[in-house]
Design a binder for these strands. Structure first.
Lengths: 221, 221
DNA sequence: GCCCTTATTATCCATACGTATAATTCCTTG
DNA sequence: CAAGGAATTATACGTATGGATAATAAGGGC
């Protein structure tokens, strides 16, 4: 053992940036290889630090991975709500279309997001915190969708709205999963087009042509 | 250390039974806690043997878990095909309804099946064997669905059939996931009813009342 | 009823994991 | 420019994992 054991040089960073970097590194690794690939050592290497630092910012590795999971899930819901809230005027169909469309473009429909979701899905059955995050984001999403459906210009029927929200949510989930995990399987804009057509059929409405992606991308491969 | 170290007594079993037991044990553990819970020691304990025996029947732990995964996936596809093939006469709508219904009852829609599916889903991105099994069962399922849709009594339109098969597949997937992982969230038969209504809306058809579950179970909670 | 094959158990090994703690170096404050 | 504190690295520990090998006993063939 040489006495000249060189110690790795480093820079001090703000707490916020370090936490963000570690969460981002954990997200990437979970997306790539599932939760079991997001080891303390791998996360640290990806973030460019040494493993010990993780426990300086998080009381345990679990806390870090939970934070990463929550961030992915919340970002997805927030994207949809933000898009629908941006539609001006009293336009229930336009708001619904915007909400749907947000799910089928980055940053929501990406291999990373789908990978994280899949990697954590089964953990919710054993980990109460994961389960709580999953339930909160999942049911919150569906409730938001049901609100948009209930606002459509037609006779009120809460039981029907519930069933249709469940169906639309399932359709969006399935398409999002396929489109995000097999991006080369579909033409540009194809998944969104199928989603809008499907939701219109499920609800008995029509979306305006402006809600659809550019027709030049509509090729069905 | 006592010299009377008692060796565990055992019975010799046929190779077939031992393999089945080990696969079943691996399936259960994957369903309960994901692939990382299916350790060599846990599988052996569940099957009532000692860890060394696994390597006597399988060249590696991977080979065992792949066998378990393939068995779960193939059983799901076979259930749907078997149900639709059992419909007598030239009855495309009845065959489609039977295919759909098979997905929303045991042994297809169970927490175990959904757990195995979720546990292995993300592994397909790195493990070529898992990916091949996933792709074969997944696309095979969708092709089967598209065949049933193409057989409906209406003008032929392959491009439309493809889009509708993608949409129906996504709807079934999403509902199957929800219904299997949150069984207490839905009334008996509710998921199947929503699925049939949704697919009918997506395809512009109507299923006969006989395709639906017993009306006494239709309560919407 | 003995023996021999082999199914099964027991033990060992190298590795990787999460965590705890000690040692250092960067940066700010005066 | 000195000093102290905190951010970061380095090292060590206990445990669990998958796999390899040696020891044993169950049960069928003669």
């Amino acid at each position: 053992m040489p006495a000249t054991a060189e110690r790795r040089p480093y820079r001090r960073e703000g707490e916020e940036k370090r936490r963000e970097d570690l969460i981002a590194a954990a997200m990437e690794l979970v997306a790539e290889g599932g939760p079991e690939a997001a080891t303390v050592r791998a996360i640290a290497a990806r973030a460019g630090v040494t493993p010990g630092l993780i426990r300086h910012y998080f009381t345990s590795k679990e806390e870090l991975t939970h934070a990463a999971y929550r961030q992915v899930m919340e970002s997805m819901t927030h994207e949809g709500m933000r898009a629908s809230d941006m539609v001006p005027g009293n336009d229930p169909i336009g708001r619904l279309a915007a909400f749907v469309a947000a799910n089928f473009r980055p940053p929501v429909m990406t291999p990373v997001a789908v990978g994280v979701w899949a990697g954590y899905m089964h953990l919710g059955r054993n980990d109460p915190t994961i389960h709580a995050i999953h339930e909160a984001t999942y049911l919150g999403y569906r409730d938001r969708l049901q609100d948009l459906i209930a606002a459509l210009p037609r006779p009120a029927d809460p039981a029907r709205d519930r069933r249709e929200a469940i169906a639309c949510n399932a359709l969006i989930d399935g398409l999002w999963m396929e489109g995000g995990s097999l991006p080369d399987e579909f033409a540009r804009g194809e998944v969104l087009r199928i989603a809008l057509d499907g939701i219109a059929a499920l609800l008995g409405i029509r979306f305006p042509a402006s809600a659809y992606p550019d027709p030049s991308d509509r090729k069905t491969a």
